[in-house]
Design a protein around this nucleic acid. Structure first.
Length: 481
RNA sequence: GGCCUCAUGGUCAAGCGGUUAAGACGUCGCCCUCUCACGGCGAAAACCGGGGUUCGAGUCCCCGUGGGGCUACCA
C-alpha cells in the first residue's frame, strides 16, 4: 500500500481562519492516522493578493495548534520548492507538455474580445476561438512576442465523474465547464493548474480541501488523465459557517485562530472544538487531545452539511481544559492575562490564580474577575441586603463591628481560621452564618458576587487591609444612618 | 439564470428500514454551598414540505422549498 500523503495548501492572503485551520487539521489527522506524511505548500500564484507576513502567520498558527508538517517551505522534503511562486518554470514546462498532448492550447484573445463573449450579466464562456489556430500560426504569434495564456481544452461532449470520499459520486457535464486559463499571461499558473501539477509531483494521495472545489474537480481530473497521471482520492469538506447563511470569514470580521487565542481561549480547546465541527469520533467523546483525535479519526465520521461555529460551546470546552490543568500549567498560561488585572502585584499571585481557575472558561475573563480587589471604595448599602441570607443594612450595622473585633484578635489570619471564627461569632450572637459571612464579604469587597467567600477574600486581603475596609464600611453605614 | 451540493432540537451531533429519536453546548428548575463558580440531578426543545417504494421511512426514490458552492488571467 502506498504511503498516504496529504497537504495543506493555503494562499497567503491574510489570516488563517478557522475553516482553513480545520482543513489543515483533518489533513494532518488523516495522514497521521494512516502513518503518512502531511505537507505544507504555499499557493501564492496571485501576486496581487500577497499579504506581507501571511506566511509567517500560517507557520505560527499551525505550530500553536500543534499541527506539525513533515515537508514544507524551510522544512525540507524531496518535492520542493514548496512555494508556488518559486515553481513557475515547472508549471510552464507542464503547460507546454499539456498543449502537446492536446489537453490545452495557446490563446491570444484580448480582454475586449473576451468581454464581448459575455452577456449583460457577465455570463458566457470562451468559444475556443484560438483552438482553431494552426501550429504555425501559434508559432508565429509566439515568435512575434504576442501576449498569451494557455487554456484547458475541455471536451465539448461528455461528462466527468469521480467518487468523493465524503460526498459520494459527483458528475459534471463538460459543457458546463469553460476552457479556463491554466497559465496566465504573467507566466504564473492559476490554481486550477498549479494544484494538479503540484499534487501530482508531490505525490499527494488524498486531496483534502473545501467543498467549493466539488464541482470543479472534474476539470482537474481531465488534466490528470491527459498527462496519464493517477488521480488522487478526494475528500471535500463542508464550510464552517458564522450563521445559517454566512461563511466564517475574515471579511465578516470573524475571529481567526489567533484572535481566539488572544481572547484567552485555550489553544488545545480551539483545535479540539473545530475538529468536532463536521466530524465526530464515532462515540460521545468531546474532549480529546490531538493524539486521541489521530487515533479516532475516520472518514466515516465526516459530515456533509455546513456547521455553524458556536462560540458558547467553544467557551465551555475551553473551560473544561482550564479546569483540567494543574495549578502550574494554569499559572503559566494565565499569567499574561493576570498581568492585565488591576489586582496583579497587589495580592498574592498564587492565591489569585487559585481563586480564578475554577471560575473562568477563557483566560480573558481573569482581569474582570479580579479587578474589584483593587477598586475598593464607597458602595451602595443596599448591597448588604440579601433575602436568602436574611441580611440587610441593619444586620450589617451589628455584624461588622463584632466581626472586626474577631478578626483583629485572630491569632492565625488564614481562610479556615477566619471562617471558623466568623461562624463561631454567629453562633455566639445568635446570627445565621450567612448573615455574618455575607455582610463581611460585602464590606470587604463591595461586590455582590466575588470569586471566593468572605473568609477567602479576607485571607487574600490580609488582616491590615481587612480591618481598614471593615472600619471604612462601618463608618459609611453610620453616616448613612 | 445554469450546474454541483446539503437538509434531525437554538447550536454541534448519534441514527444507516422497525428506537420511548442518543449525547453535548446553551436555556430553565432543583440540590450542594460563606456570594459567585465548580459539581450533582431534572425539564423544555428536532426528523423542512409533498408525493411515492415498503407490512413498516428520520433512514430509500422523485418533486418542491430553503441553505451553501461554482459559473475570474482568485484560490
Amino acid at each position: 500500500m502506498k504511503e498516504v500523503r496529504t497537504r495543506f495548501a493555503p494562499s497567503p492572503t491574510g489570516y488563517m481562519h478557522i475553516g482553513n485551520l480545520r482543513t489543515a487539521l483533518y489533513g494532518y489527522l488523516f495522514a497521521k492516522k494512516n502513518g503518512g506524511k502531511f505537507i505544507l505548500r504555499i499557493e501564492d500564484t496571485d501576486s496581487s493578493r500577497y499579504v506581507e507576513d501571511a506566511v509567517r502567520v500560517i507557520y505560527e498558527t499551525l505550530a500553536e495548534a500543534g499541527i506539525s508538517c513533515d515537508e514544507g517551505p524551510g522544512m525540507g522534503g524531496d518535492c520542493g520548492p514548496y512555494i508556488q511562486s518559486e515553481r513557475a518554470a515547472i508549471y510552464k514546462e507542464y503547460a507546454e507538455k499539456l498543449v502537446e498532448r492536446g489537453g490545452a492550447y495557446y490563446c491570444f484573445c484580448d480582454k475586449a474580445r473576451l468581454d464581448s463573449l459575455r452577456d449583460a450579466n457577465g455570463v458566457g464562456r470562451y468559444d475556443k476561438h484560438c483552438l482553431r489556430l494552426t501550429k504555425e500560426g501559434v508559432a508565429a504569434k509566439l515568435a512575434a512576442g504576442e501576449p498569451y495564456v494557455i487554456r484547458q481544452n475541455i471536451p465539448a461532449e461528455g461528462s466527468g465523474s469521480y467518487e468523493d470520499l465524503v460526498y459520494g459520486e459527483v458528475t459534471v457535464d463538460f459543457k458546463e465547464i469553460e476552457d479556463g486559463v491554466l497559465l496566465k499571461s504573467d507566466g504564473m499558473p492559476t490554481y486550477n493548474f498549479a494544484n494538479v501539477v503540484d499534487d501530482h509531483l508531490m505525490g499527494i494521495t488524498h486531496v483534502i480541501r473545501g467543498s467549493e472545489y466539488l464541482s470543479s474537480t472534474p476539470k482537474y481530473n481531465l488534466i490528470y488523465d491527459a498527462f496519464g497521471w493517477e488521480r488522487p482520492a478526494y475528500i471535500h469538506l463542508p464550510p464552517i459557517m458564522k450563521n445559517a447563511r454566512e461563511k466564517l470569514s475574515k471579511r465578516n470580521g470573524d475571529a481567526s485562530f489567533q484572535d481566539l487565542v488572544a481572547k484567552g481561549y485555550v489553544k488545545e480547546a480551539i483545535v479540539n472544538y473545530i475538529a468536532l465541527l463536521g466530524w465526530n469520533p464515532g462515540d460521545n467523546r468531546e474532549k480529546m487531545s490531538l493524539s486521541e483525535m489521530i487515533a479516532a479519526f475516520s472518514l466515516e465520521g465526516l459530515h456533509k452539511s455546513p456547521s455553524i461555529f458556536d462560540e458558547p460551546k467553544l467557551r465551555w470546552l475551553s473551560g473544561e481544559y482550564i479546569r483540567a490543568m494543574s495549578a502550574e500549567e494554569f499559572a503559566a498560561a494565565a499569567l499574561p492575562f493576570l498581568e492585565k488585572s488591576k489586582a496583579y502585584g497587589k495580592f498574592d499571585t498564587v492565591a489569585l490564580l487559585r481563586l480564578v481557575q475554577p471560575r473562568v472558561e477563557i483566560f480573558g475573563e481573569i482581569p474582570e474577575k479580579l479587578d474589584f480587589l483593587a477598586e475598593y471604595g464607597a458602595f451602595d448599602a443596599a448591597l448588604y441586603g440579601n433575602k436568602k441570607m436574611k441580611t440587610d443594612e441593619t444586620v450589617a450595622r451589628q455584624v461588622l463591628p463584632a466581626a472586626e473585633e474577631v478578626l483583629r484578635a485572630l491569632p492565625v489570619f488564614a481562610n479556615a481560621e477566619i471562617y471558623a471564627a466568623l461562624v463561631a461569632l454567629a453562633q455566639e450572637r445568635g446570627w445565621k452564618n450567612g448573615q455574618v459571612l455575607w455582610c463581611v464579604r460585602i464590606a470587604l469587597t463591595a461586590k455582590e458576587s466575588t470569586p471566593g467567600g468572605a473568609s477567602e477574600m479576607a485571607e487574600l486581603l490580609g488582616r491590615e487591609e481587612c480591618l481598614a475596609r471593615l472600619a471604612a464600611a462601618r463608618q459609611r453605614l453610620r453616616e448613612g444612618a
